[in-house]
Computed example of a mutant assay.
Amino acid sequence: MPTASYSHKTVSLTDDGFFEDPAQWTEDMAPEIAKTAGIDELTEQHWQVIRFMRAKYDTDGTGPSVRALGKTSGVTVKELYQLFPKGPAKLAAKIAGIPKPRGCI
C-alpha cells in the first residue's frame, strides 16, 4: 500500500493516490497535495470546492460528480475546469482527502 507524507504526517493512499482513510486529512495538507497535482496556490474558490467535497462525502459517502459539483457547489463547471484541470471532481477529491467519486475514471 503506497504512502505519502503531508504536513509531517504519513498517510496511506490507494494505488490511484487517494486517501485510504479520509479522517487522516487536515486542511494543512491540501496545499501540499495541490502542489503535487500542479496547482501552485489554493484560492478561496478552490477552498469552496474542497470544503464542499468534504461535506458531501460526510453526508453521502462519496464525492459529487463534476455535473453535480457544478450545479450545487456555487462554482460553475467551466470554473471547475479552470481551478482543477484534468478532471475537476477527481482532482478536487484527491486534494480534499476523500476517495475518488463514483463514476470517475
Score class of each variant (00 low, 15 high):
57 Y>M: 07
27 E>M: 03
102 R>K: 15
23 A>C: 05
30 A>I: 00
73 S>E: 01
76 T>W: 07
102 R>D: 14
60 D>G: 02
21 D>G: 00
104 C>P: 00
95 I>W: 11
52 F>Y: 15
56 K>A: 14
95 I>R: 11
27 E>T: 13
44 E>T: 15
44 E>H: 02
70 G>A: 12
37 A>K: 14
35 K>R: 15
89 A>D: 13
64 P>S: 05
6 Y>Q: 08
98 I>N: 09
67 R>L: 09
76 T>A: 12
83 L>S: 06
47 W>K: 06
17 G>A: 11
92 A>V: 08
53 M>W: 02
36 T>W: 01
70 G>P: 09
13 L>Y: 06
5 S>E: 14
30 A>G: 00
23 A>N: 12
15 D>E: 14
100 K>D: 04
94 K>L: 15
9 K>N: 10
54 R>E: 12
3 T>V: 12
7 S>Y: 14
14 T>Q: 01
61 G>H: 04
50 I>T: 06
33 I>Q: 07
65 S>F: 06
9 K>A: 13
70 G>D: 07
1 M>Q: 04
81 Y>I: 02
43 T>D: 12
39 I>P: 07
3 T>M: 04
60 D>R: 13
100 K>E: 14
1 M>C: 09
79 E>M: 15
97 G>S: 04
33 I>K: 03
60 D>P: 04
23 A>G: 00
35 K>I: 07
89 A>C: 11
49 V>D: 05
12 S>I: 06
97 G>V: 03
100 K>S: 09
7 S>H: 13
97 G>L: 02
66 V>R: 05
96 A>Q: 09
49 V>S: 03
63 G>Q: 06
67 R>N: 09
58 D>R: 02
42 L>V: 10
105 I>F: 11
86 K>G: 02
93 A>D: 04
28 D>Q: 13
85 P>T: 07
89 A>W: 03
62 T>P: 00
85 P>F: 06
47 W>T: 04
99 P>H: 05
70 G>R: 09
44 E>W: 01
84 F>H: 05
69 L>S: 09
22 P>F: 00
97 G>R: 05
15 D>Q: 15
93 A>S: 15
92 A>F: 01
33 I>M: 11
73 S>P: 01
35 K>Y: 05
71 K>H: 09
57 Y>Q: 02
